[in-house]
Design a binder for these strands. Structure first.
Lengths: 341, 341
DNA sequence: TTGAAAGCGATACCAC
DNA sequence: GTGGTATCGCTTTCAA
């Protein structure tokens, strides 16, 4: 096997006694090449172990064949990952690769400058945005500049934008209605940090809206805590709720992995799940199946969402998306052992 | 704000009335430029919103400033992620970005061709390899071709190679010795699939070696199951063990998230942890803190490992690594509530 | 069916 | 201190 490096199309041309143009045509599968020439050159390419220089091709083509996923880490080193994140990331990566795109994971927090420069400096053709806020300067900026991107999440004004998101409001409503229908009324809501809601973080905002709607419509008592990320926070909040509301009979949470801490707290107080207290979480199915007891959860098809987001973006780049595609996934409750019936 | 696209260095040169060379010098921070010129050009660049074309720079420089992480998915769509994987991925991405490298997540399974082509086609400067086998054709191939890479994991013959890995053998030994020292003898070992060991998957192999060593040295009964990934598998294996060994007093597992299923199974049988049965797992600290009860675990500093692997690779690319760097992280047992004392 | 040459956007050498 | 120009590897007219 020949192991030499740094082969160029010129080397291939020389080695096969044809011109560079001809080699290029063959590489690009053009049809106007004599069969014999093609076969010969392909064999030379194979023997030499030549592969075309991707960056040179990109430069020439004016496209990078690179996608980016913005996954900003607020505090690298101590990251509030949850079990959903890896599904988004890996599924998006796989989807991009399937269509021969490179996929870059971008974890640094972006500035207006650095965001625009991703496109201007031709590092990427398009972007998947996560952690989208209701008013999101990144979205405004990209829209204004006409740069291609899709969101996992959505903003207040989504005119002209493509996205895929879970119906968070509907999800919370579905969870509550399930319990209310069974006669539960003392239901606590453990939700995302108040700060995130104030800042307009989509899921924080919309789960809250769902909760308000439930409170008003069914006149159940407003028992809730908006808690920060972290095991201890969810744990403490649960204990505090149990102290405060002695006849608490269920907890619904939008903290993906916080459900685990809630279970810990209930155990700590000797409360049996679901007999003394039911639990419903908005978390990955994978995680919901691993807890003891298994969790009744709102389906969160993160894998599917990542996959579809990238697919959407690629169609956009190919101009196959004549109008914006906006997908809101309806809530789906999956019953397991943390609730009765 | 000017939002025009597709600006080139020539546009900047024209707009500021200097030559392309001068703009290039300024972009690259060379010192032989008049202060006035520099300031003027920088201002023009700012006004125009110009950013140099990364691919063109790469082409010229002969370097891509791209790193790749190989994270092959055997069965996309139904992926056996565990809580460690995201830490590897995200920490590696963050480390690359910190040094201004793009970071690509590669989930497709590679062939000899496609692996070499990553380098030949100049898509990446270097690679981080995960899921390394004791005999690993990828490693052999890259070594033979002299392509830069580092491993998270290691092979049988690591001559000339750089890697960072956990001391899996030592970890298993540490876990057993901890229990044996306290008088436990009926300890079950729930380990990685036999198939992976046969295939020479590093962690499967070395945890097994650790176990053999313990069996021989302490003459404890060989109670073990090599189980496939998946909730059900670990769950069933645990139940089977409990049926088989009535005085089972502890379980040690190398299945990162399998510990959760083991807990489920013990609960199912009404066994209290740790009083009736202790559990020690080789899993992420983050996960160990979330279970009920919290898990005594072998520290698995995945975040740190991803970070250091990329750092190693970047030093290699800068030729700062005069000789191979081989890091084996010593085992560290973190006591929590799934064991006594 | 094939080849020569221009050009993608940037850098660096060599003049001046 | 500054500008002209060859060059990185490839694709694509345009001619032959």
């Amino acid at each position: 096997m020949v192991t030499s490096n740094e082969l160029t199309i010129t080397d291939v041309a020389k080695a096969s006694g044809v011109s560079v143009s001809t080699v290029s045509r063959i590489l690009n599968g053009k049809q106007d090449v004599a069969k014999a020439t093609r076969e010969h050159v392909l064999q030379v390419i194979d023997e030499l172990g030549y592969a075309p220089h991707a960056q040179a091709q990109s430069l020439r083509a004016g496209k990078t064949r690179n996608l980016g996923l913005l996954f900003p880490l607020k505090d690298p080193g101590n990251v509030p990952y949850n079990s959903l994140d890896i599904e988004f990331i890996v599924s998006a990566a796989a989807a991009a690769e399937k269509q021969n795109f490179f996929f870059s994971l971008l974890t640094a927090s972006v500035t207006e400058q650095s965001l625009l420069n991703l496109y201007r400096s031709a590092q990427i053709d398009g972007l998947v945005l996560m952690q989208v806020y209701s008013e999101d300067w990144r979205v405004d900026l990209l829209r204004k500049n006409g740069y291609p991107f899709v969101m996992i999440g959505h903003t207040e004004n989504n005119e002209g934008l493509s996205f895929i998101d879970l119906d968070f409001k509907g999800a919370v409503i579905a969870a509550f209605e399930h319990l209310i229908r069974q006669g539960y009324r003392q239901i606590a809501f453990i939700s995302l940090p108040n700060k995130m809601r104030q800042e307009g973080y989509g899921p924080a905002l919309r789960t809250w809206e769902g909760y308000q709607r439930i409170i008003e419509q069914y006149h159940i008592p407003a028992i809730y805590r908006e808690v920060n990320f972290g095991r201890q926070e969810a744990f403490d909040a649960t204990l505090a709720l149990l102290d405060e509301v002695h006849d608490l009979s269920a907890i619904i949470t939008t903290h993906a992995d916080g459900a685990l801490s809630i279970i810990q707290a209930l155990n700590e107080r000797g409360m049996r799940i679901p007999d003394d207290c039911s639990v419903i979480a908005l978390t990955a199915n994978r995680m919901a199946e691993l807890t003891t007891p298994t969790l009744t959860n709102l389906d969160f098809p993160a894998h599917d969402m990542g996959d579809r987001a990238v697919d959407m973006l690629l169609r956009m780049l190919r101009n196959e998306l004549t109008e914006p595609e906006q997908v809101l996934i309806p809530p789906k409750l999956i019953l397991r052992n943390s609730t009765n019936l």
